[in-house]
Design a protein around this nucleic acid. Structure first.
Lengths: 337, 337
DNA sequence: TTGTAAGCGTTATCAT
DNA sequence: ATGATAACGCTTACAA
């Protein structure tokens, strides 16, 4: 297609009157070059607009510097926030993010991982879906690292970073009880991902431990609109709940809006609401949602530092799992405090 | 670092009992291979877990398939929405997105473009900041394509996609006038990007054409919090405005929240508000913001199809600019309709 | 410290 | 249709 004409190391070498290797060494941190040649090379490179070809370098070094981010629902506040911190952290450690959007086809996580292999990515970070066992094994066998965030998979080999969802659910139950709520509900999507289900199960279990029942409702995709539908369903019951734990903030925003504008219910006076993720909108004046903060910075740091850490034990790759704590962010969608 | 051991074409060839070239041809669309060899190769490849090395392929073909997305404020609804459609469109046409986050350092757009060159990206799409003239020239000279979205630059060579911001500003003025508003205000950030300024200038000019003045206030970064500050400033004036055009939806959300919750002003009864971008939150029940929709799908399609179109005229690369129309999305933050 | 030469995994050219 | 061979731009022993 486009007639690309990049400057090569040879041209720089010619102009500087040195060998190709001298040029290569100049751009290799920690290689031995005399200050004089270095200067000449840098000068020629600058004049010619030379930039090391990372494709070729990756080929030789067997290390591309590419990390593949596999993501769906790219435009949701939580996911985009995740991508933001991950790209920052990756760039900070000299890597570059390749972004694969899996919104389109089904089973596209596998397709995405194939892309990662094609470009010889040093690692893949999966924020959505679950890879097929076989393709995941291929990645690991090929020496590619795998990080699963909020996927809670049983597979061996990848790094798994998860939150303590159950425990958080228990804490929010206490908060509801302190606010005097007894008619509990849980609003979930039908996505059924491990972390979503852990929140649900944790909440139900904690309630049961206190001798209380929870009305659970699930609907559609984990977004604002689903929150409205869930409100429709939960707030039209004979026994209207006085406390709702929503599986995500996005659901909670939709739920609150429906409760207030459609059912004229006052939050938190007549209904306490809690969410999960602490997306930016949770802090907006219209919501002031009590929620759990995803420790984004920590997640990114842990993920990237694990990628940087030396080679994984070839012997079946040591199994690593990190469970992080989610801080409760108190706002006014729950009475008291 | 990690001992990566990917399967090579040679290994596949050996196992299938054919030559390397046969393997290569099997994976090159439109190459001539007999069904028989093809089958043997595919079988061996599958058994071994072979995947074409795009690094090496890019080296040979002088075409990496990589497109670099250069972005700041990654986590805002508008930017993430943009990234979503762009990645979809790119993947759809067989390309892959490399994401560079420029939130960190200043002048990092140049750094980002350097990364694009390092990885021999076929093109770069810039959603934020402006590249230095020299580095942009280097990209173009190297045969890399450049797309600037909502940057409205004068430079020659790159494709420039912009909205008709001035014209849109004129339309919203009419809407305000029809609603009976006469005390106009414009809420802007201090970012001063061309599109933001075009909205401001277009609004002021249109008002002047109708013999009306506009109070313009600018503050901080283009986010929710700035909207609140701007409301603070504009709503405490002697002459309180009865209509505010906010440069973006995010500003508008902050503005509306402050107006309602802090100043107990009713929107749209006492104050009409309009925004720009049509982010998801604009449609939420708490805002119901009248705004202009960014034609995201069209933008992405235009950008990617331009990348696919044959080689740019080497003779100074024909100058291409696309100006798109922003549809007005009517909701209830303006009276009437 | 420097240059020479081999090799990374492809694809493209050219015979066959 | 197939196989040998020469690139592609780089890094890295190895030799000087």
């Amino acid at each position: 297609m486009s007639q690309k004409v990049f400057v090569s190391a040879q041209e720089v070498a010619d102009r500087a009157g040195v060998s190709r290797s001298a040029v290569s060494r100049t751009f290799t941190p920690g290689a031995s070059v005399s200050p004089e040649t270095r200067r000449k090379v840098l000068e020629a490179a600058d004049a010619l607009g030379y930039h090391v070809n990372h494709l070729a370098r990756g080929l030789m070094r067997n290390e591309s510097g590419i990390v593949c981010l596999i993501v769906s629902d790219l435009a949701t506040p939580h996911r985009s926030g995740m991508i933001k911190v991950l790209t920052q952290e990756l760039q900070h450690s000299g890597k570059i993010a390749m972004l694969v959007n899996t919104d389109l086809s089904d089973g596209s996580v596998d397709l995405a991982l194939r892309q990662a292999i094609h470009y010889r990515a040093d690692a893949s970070i999966i924020l959505s879906g679950m890879p097929d066992k076989s393709i995941a094994q291929l990645c690991l066998k090929s020496g590619q690292r795998l990080v699963l965030i909020n996927r809670d998979d049983e597979q061996d080999g990848p790094l798994r970073i998860n939150l303590d969802d159950e425990e958080a659910a228990g804490r929010i139950l206490i908060a509801f009880l302190r606010a005097g709520c007894r008619k509990l509900a849980f609003a979930n999507s039908e996505a059924g991902t491990p972390s979503l289900m852990a929140r649900e199960n944790g909440f139900v279990a904690a309630a049961r431990a206190h001798g209380l029942d929870v009305v659970v409702e699930r609907y559609g995709w984990t977004g604002y609109e689903s929150g409205r539908v869930l409100a429709q369903r939960l707030l039209t019951r004979n026994q209207r709940p006085d406390a709702v734990f929503c599986a995500t903030d996005l659901l909670a925003c939709g739920f609150m809006d429906a409760a207030r504008h459609q059912f004229s219910i006052s939050v938190p006076d007549q209904l306490c609401v809690a969410g999960f993720d602490d997306i930016e909108q949770a802090s907006w004046a219209s919501y002031q949602l009590t929620t759990f903060a995803q420790p984004l910075a920590t997640i990114a740091r842990e993920a990237v530092s694990w990628l940087e850490s030396g080679p994984v034990a070839n012997s079946e790759g040591r199994t690593s799992a990190i469970r992080l704590h989610a801080d409760l962010v108190w706002r006014s969608s729950i009475r008291g405090g």
